[in-house]
C-alpha cells in the first residue's frame, strides 16, 4: 500500500507516493537516485547508510521512510555547495580519510552531525561519535585525523 510522503531532502521539499514498507535507504537510492548513501551490511551494524534526519545521524537501512515524514533529510549529496566540497569532504580528501570509499559517506554524515553539535571535539569524542561506523579498510586513524582537521577549519561555503 502506498501513501504520500512529504519531507525535505537536501533542502528541497518533496512529495512522493511511497509504499508503507519502504526503507529510507531504498527511497533515497531507488526513488531519488541518491546513491551516495551506501548499503553495507544492510542490517544496522556498519553505519555505511548513515544520513541526517533533522541534523541527527540515523541508519537509513533500519528506518521506515514514512516514519521520518515531515523531517529534513540530508545525504552526502547535500554537503557540497556550488561545486565546492564541504570542510569534512575536503579534509577526508586532503588527509587521506578515504581508502576504498565505501564507508566514507556514512563516516562523513556521522562526523557532520558531531561537528554541528560540538564544533571542536576532542579525539575521544570523535571516536565515540564514529563508533557505529565500520571501515573494512581499517583506515580509522586517517579518518579520525580528517575529522579533527575539519574541526580546525571554518566552513567557507554554505
Amino acid at each position: 500500500m502506498k501513501s504520500i510522503l512529504r519531507l525535505s531532502v537536501n533542502g528541497k521539499p518533496r512529495e512522493d507516493a511511497v509504499a508503507d514498507n519502504t526503507l529510507l535507504i531504498d527511497y533515497l537510492r531507488d526513488a531519488l537516485g541518491l546513491t551516495g548513501t551506501k548499503q553495507g551490511c544492510d542490517g544496522g551494524e556498519c553505519g555505511a547508510c548513515t544520513v541526517l534526519v533533522d541534523s541527527r545521524p540515523r541508519l537509513a537501512c533500519s528506518t521506515l521512510a514514512h516514519s521520518v515524514a515531515g523531517s529534513e533529510i540530508e545525504t552526502i549529496e547535500g554537503l557540497s555547495h556550488a561545486g565546492n566540497l564541504s570542510r569534512l569532504q575536503r579534509a577526508f580528501h586532503e588527509h587521506l580519510g578515504t581508502q576504498c570509499g565505501f564507508c566514507t559517506p556514512g563516516m562523513i554524515m556521522a562526523a557532520e552531525a558531531l561537528l554541528r553539535s560540538n564544533p571542536h571535539p576532542q579525539r575521544a569524542q570523535i571516536k565515540a561519535a564514529l563508533a557505529g561506523n565500520l571501515c573494512r579498510c581499517t583506515g580509522y586513524v586517517k579518518i579520525i585525523e580528517s575529522v579533527a582537521a575539519a574541526s580546525a577549519t571554518t566552513e567557507l561555503s554554505a
Binding site: T50, P57, L59, G132
Partner: peptide, 9 residues
Amino acid sequence: VAGPTHRAA
C-alpha cells in the same frame, strides 16, 4: 547500547 546512530533512534 549499540552505537551512537542506533541510540539516536
